[in-house]
Design a protein around this nucleic acid. Structure first.
Lengths: 147, 147
DNA sequence: AATGATAGTTGAGGGGGTAAACCATTTATG
DNA sequence: CATAAATGGTTTACCCCCTCAACTATCATT
């Protein structure tokens, strides 16, 4: 039992904390070089909600509103998102532009190809099921507490 | 099959790309606030190898040598590592100081407690086995290609 | 000795983040 | 109704991370 925890600690650090970072950095597709992971995540979240406020985006990404404000400015410059004014003139709703939508689609497509290739090469069918199961669980856990 | 890939893409992004970051940021232990994840990873790698060169550390972390040089300077200032001169006077071997070792130990202990609590609460025994199995596989995949 | 390769450092430029101060606007309350 | 309090965002200062290219120092080769 103790050994298992020890192994789990090593694996969690290796895979989650450091491995992913290394992998992201090594992605050499121009799309992933032009837009940061956090920017891509913003697009994804905005897309999911259709329209979203800065404040909510900050909660979903788990960062301060100033971080979102900063990122939003960059996405606006790149013309991937646009702002819609609401009745409450303090708040601004963010939504994707057509360019933003196609960047997001393209990114998902690339990632899908990547994973599909990887899985077919190195992971058998039964393992894929287990992958999904474990990742569903992780996703659920990460959403409630932090891990 | 197509649906599974689609779900896998979502889950990978949610868990690996964004979830982990969010979790790391939410860790409120002073240890994790004082030292960045990359700094902790450096300590872990230096510990594993006993003594290590800048160049090798860069390869293991998957970053440019300048990034390592920069980080090394900070770890030296915090007195977590020290430099040993070799015959080849161009290269410097890094090794942990006693302070560095105890920081690393403390960090591993905290993480172990964290995971243990988490697992016992939300994950049953059989799932833990699956977790380990999947993460071993992921770790292996990440080490060879990037994901 | 001269050329070339190797180990690290430095500096510019851009990504990420926090925290606190600061507008603007809306809501609540005396 | 007017003033105080709360809310949504922006800005600024400061820190960490990274890459890329230029540069120093040292070792190895020819």
């Amino acid at each position: 039992m103790d050994m298992r925890i020890k192994e789990a600690v090593e694996l969690f650090q290796e895979v989650l904390f450091y491995g992913t970072e290394r992998v992201i950095r090594s992605l050499d597709n121009p799309l992933w070089e032009e837009f940061s992971p956090e920017q891509m995540q913003s697009l994804k979240l905005i897309d999911k909600e259709g329209q979203i406020t800065s404040a909510r985006l900050a909660v979903l990404q788990g960062v301060h509103k100033s971080a979102v404000s900063n990122r939003t400015k960059k996405l606006l410059q790149k013309e991937l998102i646009q702002v819609v004014q609401t009745a409450d003139r303090r708040e601004k709703l963010l939504e994707l532009t057509d360019a933003g939508k196609s960047v997001l689609e393209e990114s998902d497509k690339l990632l899908a190809e990547y994973l599909e290739k990887l899985m077919s090469e190195r992971v058998d069918d039964q393992e894929i099921e287990q992958f999904l199961k474990i990742f569903r669980k992780l996703s659920a856990i990460m959403k409630t507490d932090g891990v």
